[in-house]
Amino acid sequence: MTRPSDIKPREDEQRGTTYEDYVIGDTLPPLRFTVTPEIMREYASVVDGSAGGYDVGTRKAALPSVLQVYFMAVLYSKYPPQQGGVMGANQFRFFEPIWADESIDIIGTGRIEKKFVKRNKRYVSFSADFKDTKGRLIAQALNVSHFPE
């Protein structure tokens, strides 16, 4: 099991990335983690979901948005977080079920897409692909956040 806190650099642990540090087009290295049924149930509990999962054919699947709790770690593994980051927008696309009764090993990779200043706020956008160990695409995500420095 990989709890997000096991792989996610935390604010104040090291110097936080400033707006100037982000490099557009920079790739974010592979981040490996294991999502277990325990994490899936815990995620369901914090988003008002069903701990038992959701019907997909004859099986039960977890909420695919469970990957959300690992998403920022893809960015922070290369660009450590600063205090005070606020999300502006988020997008997720799902491609394969995450089965509720078995663990899945995921590899997340990403890219810095753009950065811009709007209404005196400094925004950074990055994307991520989440694949299983066979290379199947499980989900894609895109985030825009703004940071105080």
Binding site: Y54, D55, P64, S65, N90, F94
Partner: peptide, 18 residues
Amino acid sequence: ARMYGDAWHRRGEIEVKF
């Protein structure tokens, strides 16, 4: 996930602005 059922897991996409 509840609204779209099975299909959400293979063809779902969500986009939000805060």
